[in-house]
Design a protein around this nucleic acid. Structure first.
Lengths: 245, 245
DNA sequence: CGTTATCTTGACCGTCGTCAAACAGGGTGG
DNA sequence: CCACCCTGTTTGACGACGGTCAAGATAACG
């Protein structure tokens, strides 16, 4: 009980959300070599075009992945919470196709690609867990395509807020009442395919309807069910129930 | 030379786009048990909520994956060309989070999930190839998020047309001059997050500028470079160069 | 041929973007 | 402690891109 928790424990928890690991698997993951670093907000962890030889795991704080158009418009394509791998895709893809950035100050563990690859080669359960994690990420991408392509600003924002709430909850990071949204309205717009101005109006509209509460960046949910309904939110795409062995 | 080509040969070709397979791997893939079926246009292959025990591969014709909002709006989240796996994610995810539908009349091979899983377990190169294929799909999802979230209708459509051209080319399915776009403007709208009416206006606008040629659904590219520029298209996200061993 | 899906066009409307300015908060340095 | 600045939030006026509705034209198909 008094054991010091490994920094990688949260990553193990994340992988076990969707896959079954045994004690040997857990120990092997925790025994991975890693380097700890702290990054300031908005630091780049990976840049498009890079060929990283390390894989990054987010231990604390928040991060996102992002792409830019030639005209310089930004689109955030995913948001990451503590425990989540940030670029395990570089286990198998050599060149980064997008940027990875911290949102807040964040602690990052980097694991040598070679060590992780070898572990995946030797332990089928770990290989499966990483694969399933990738597949669930893919499912989230699809839901974002639907969200951005086919829902209006109010539903779109509501959906985003619901997803974030559920994912925090899954990782055991839930606050008593709602959560602190770790991003500016500009960044929110970049995640939703909207402008910062319209995000502002949309947030205030949800607030005016009593669907969310706000105190600075803290969001609370006085009418969770109504918000979820507006968001057209179903958690199926997060594959919560699944535990592949 | 006179050997009859296995229906799965095109799938092997697809997997070898991004991964290195040896003769044993190829033979093992071609020896997989499968069932051949032909489907009419718009047939459902997988429905959201299903728990398929087969994995589908597209042998001829075209297919897409799609999600619906509660209000009934459709969003196509990916388009598939011959040789591509349609739902290898069900190797590791039990419940489908989206629908898979044929676009045209299509030949489909279904492979028992168990057989494919076992093959992946025994042959690291095949497991890697499937994983890399999944990762490249993920990269395409991200680019679609960017495309729908941050590009206007003209660029968005142009980008879609460029992607389709390059992917057909990669799979060796290029016609002499352009290609037959296998979808209605309604479906095009569902893929781009636009309405059919606006797709129509946008296509005609590209045509009027000489950026594409049209003859019914056949699209040609009299000014490929200019179209590519308008589309802000870079093929990096398709990971063409990559061949992970 | 008739029937139906798809494409095309016009008129009109609304959501969201643009531009700009005011305002609030948090940190820094004098 | 206060002036200053910087970033982020809020608000208003206006415009435009794309949506809606509806009708007519064209092409596919039995």
């Amino acid at each position: 009980m008094a054991t010091t928790l490994s920094p990688l424990a949260l990553m193990v928890r994340k992988l076990e959300t969707h896959a079954v690991l045994d004690d040997g698997d857990r120990k092997a993951l925790l025994a991975l070599p890693y380097t700890l670093r702290t990054f300031e907000p908005s630091s780049y962890l990976v840049r498009e075009g890079d060929a990283p030889d390390q894989c990054a795991v987010l231990l604390s704080g928040f991060a996102y992945r992002q792409k830019l158009t030639g005209a310089g418009m930004r689109q955030i394509v995913s948001l990451h919470i503590p425990g989540e791998p940030l670029d395990f895709q570089h286990l198998f893809l050599d060149v980064a196709d997008h940027n990875v950035q911290t949102l807040t100050r964040a602690e990052i563990a980097t694991i040598p690609r070679s060590a992780l690859r070898e572990l995946a080669r030797n332990r089928a359960a770990i290989s499966n867990a990483i694969f399933v994690n990738t597949l669930v990420e893919g499912s989230i991408f699809r839901e974002w395509i639907l969200n951005i392509g086919r829902r209006d600003a109010r539903s779109r924002l509501a959906h985003f807020l619901c997803e974030f709430a559920i994912r925090l909850d899954m990782q055991g990071l839930t606050g008593a009442d709602g959560y602190e949204l770790p991003m500016s309205q500009e960044q929110l717009g970049d995640a939703l395919g909207l402008t910062a101005v319209h995000v502002n109006r949309t947030i205030k509209s949800l607030e005016a309807d009593g669907l969310i509460g706000r105190n600075r960046r803290r969001i609370s949910f006085p009418q969770w069910d109504a918000l979820r309904e507006l968001a057209d939110f179903s958690s199926r795409y997060l594959h919560l129930a699944q535990q592949t062995s």
